[in-house]
């Protein structure tokens, strides 16, 4: 692996005095969800650290170079895993809801706010 260029390219963000803290809005939302759920006691921060560490190792083993730019993907994987482990929802529910959001975008005229429409399936 090349040395410095692997991280110097990324050196400017996030949370620098000059740069944005979160590179994309979903990073911020995923960050806040984990902090909020840990504060409300769904899991401890230690449990969180262990889970994200496992996710990072899993991603590295699957070929992720883990240069820091995929960090919030690990974060999101850990979040989904913990929520499932705690029995809040299962994988199918998460996927179904994700697709529902995708459809909601596609059905919303450009410029209008995107909202989920209530349905009978409970998702």
């Amino acid at each position: 692996m090349t040395k410095i260029d692997s991280f110097s390219l990324l050196n400017k963000q996030p949370c620098d005095d000059e740069g944005p803290v979160f590179a994309e809005p979903w990073h911020a939302q995923a960050f806040a969800l984990a902090v909020h759920l840990s504060e409300s006691g769904l899991f401890s921060w230690k449990e969180w650290s262990q889970t994200i560490n496992d996710e990072i190792i899993k991603a590295q083993n699957a070929g992720d170079l883990d240069l820091g730019n995929t960090y919030y993907e690990h974060w999101l994987n850990a979040l989904e895993l913990l929520v499932r482990k705690k029995g809040i929802f299962n994988f199918e529910e998460l996927v179904k809801r994700k697709e529902k959001w995708r459809d909601a975008y596609l059905q919303t005229p450009h410029g209008d706010p995107v909202k989920l429409t209530p349905s009978n399936d409970g998702y």
Partner: peptide
């Protein structure tokens, strides 16, 4: 991933 976060957030 953005859709996954939206899914999680709305369910939670």
């Amino acid at each position: 991933p953005a859709l996954r976060v939206k899914a999680l957030e709305s369910l939670l």
